[in-house]
Amino acid sequence: MIPGVSSATGGTSAVAVQPRRLSWQLAEVVEVVPETPRTRSLVLEVAGWKGHKAGQHVDIRLTAEDGYQAQRSYSIASAPEDERLVLTVERLEDGEVSPYLTDVLMAGDKLELRGPIGGYFAWEAKDGGPLLLVAGGSGVVPLMAMLRHRAAVSSDVPARLLYSSRSYEEIIYRKELERLVAQDGSLEVIHTLTRSRPKGWSSYHRRIDLKMLKEVGPPPAERLLAFICGPTPLVEGVATALVEIGHDTLYVKTERFGPTGGGG
């Protein structure tokens, strides 16, 4: 008998592989950090957290006094190497969950969460690159976890982030991205602003399109790993354009937000 595998006839073996149950657990909010007018980062202490891969998410469950429960998924923003788990949450006006997380929650509060979840939209430095990350709005969150992981392990995998925001004020992690670029010659961050732009803005100021991707992305001859995260129309537009340019769909991974922003 192979160690660790229970035989069909031998009953339950004590060394049988235990299914890893995904269960709800309590997290404590250590800090709430404002990122932009509409986003906050929640720094969490999760007892017994087993670690995660950059790109994974957690589910958060809120329970009202009458027992009504609402559950949403939020991407993890922190690197696996970071001491604490960080989620960055965008406030959605008609959301059931996000206004509570961004406006009401304070340090010391407790939250129910489960995770890490997902493994498809995830990147580890050993997966290599070059990396092309394309984000729309708060879609940057799981991609930031990848860039933070890449920096934490001093990976020299070439990486480019093309990041679409509505305005300069709404660029999440703007200063940290500037810092990362300044200290790392193999990282490029290219912004585009779709609604308003400050005076003297010299970068793109339109929605991401095929022409922009051709200018920004590596040529199709170069096999890349692409991760696209944002609202559904952006993700589908970018994924289609990348394939049109000639990139292999196998290496283009997407994570769409629903019309409520993937969170609510």
Binding site: H57, Q71, G115, F121, R256
Partner: peptide
């Protein structure tokens, strides 16, 4: 109550309630 089109990744949580392995990979 709308219907949302998302990636397989979005179902990872609900599917993990019934499967003991990571389903998205």
């Amino acid at each position: 109550m709308g219907e949302f089109r998302l990636d397989g990744n979005a179902a990872a949580g609900p599917l993990r309630e019934v499967f003991s392995f990571e389903v998205t990979t």
